[in-house]
Design a protein around this nucleic acid. Structure first.
Lengths: 138, 138
DNA sequence: CTCCTTGCAAACTATTTGCAATCTG
DNA sequence: CAGATTGCAAATAGTTTGCAAGGAG
């Protein structure tokens, strides 16, 4: 995808963006495809993936790549931490207070590496996985 | 993989562990396979993957899942931050000082989620990608 | 002996790409 | 129109799994 292209509008792309923006959280290409297929029966996975890349390139969506095998897309653009459950693989938003320790690095260099952001994922167990583990200890 | 099994020793598994431990950083299954194939010509990818899972389960290796498509394996067990280059996808260790802001959350709960660790990845541009970008601005 | 591990090949999951037809600016 | 976008299908990358044979405890 060359970065000097002029994007045309397309109903599919807007539908994808609108759907993610409405859900405001962590959707996989598969989920988006399944949901939009109800209204756009001829939509294809190729189109979903291509548009997700474009939306990320345009800065309208953010891609989250950790945890399970699939990439997740988020319309929430502010930098925020996530909670990843080791039990069920669920990914939640963590609205924790700002962390000066972390933010001090923005714009600085570490080992000749120009830092411009970070991704912070807490791992642990969600409520239901904690219960399940308490019930059936290994 | 049931968690109550008694592991047998195998030359393949030890070779995989030794190789990752010697390189001390971020190896993909593919790289490990390619390297060990020179000495173990009959080694298969299936064996590499199965053993990487076992080594992680045994706590001898850590799996890093972010950035590019492939999982990377690390024999360095202490919790440390990483640097991910947006340009070339390279992943480096970041030996930055402890961060009380972050460590305060260990053992605590956020939204009924029991935190027991975190993964911190700084993103940015490495030295050579910075050069390339300066040479050919978009 | 029992259960673990291996190599091989086939299966799978997530994602990407080539192409001709169609739409946008 | 030029160039972007689509649906479809085929291709790819990374990883997982079934199975029969061999190995460890």
């Amino acid at each position: 995808m060359q970065n000097n292209r002029r994007f045309h509008r397309s109903p599919q792309r807007e539908a994808i963006y609108d759907y993610v923006a409405a859900r405001k959280s962590h959707l996989s290409a598969e989920e988006i495809y399944a949901a939009l297929r109800l209204r756009h029966p001829r939509l294809s996975m190729g189109t979903v993936y291509r548009n997700l890349h474009i939306l990320v390139a345009q800065g309208r969506l953010v891609a989250l790549r950790f945890g399970s095998g699939q990439d997740l897309y988020d319309a929430r653009l502010d930098l925020h931490a996530h909670l990843l459950c080791r039990g069920c693989g669920d990914l939640l938003d963590a609205d924790i207070p700002a962390m000066p320790d972390l933010d001090q690095w923005a714009g600085k260099r570490i080992l000749d590496f120009q830092v411009d952001g970070y991704s912070l994922v807490f791992s642990g167990l969600c409520k239901s996985c904690r219960k399940r583990q308490a019930a059936a200890p290994s």
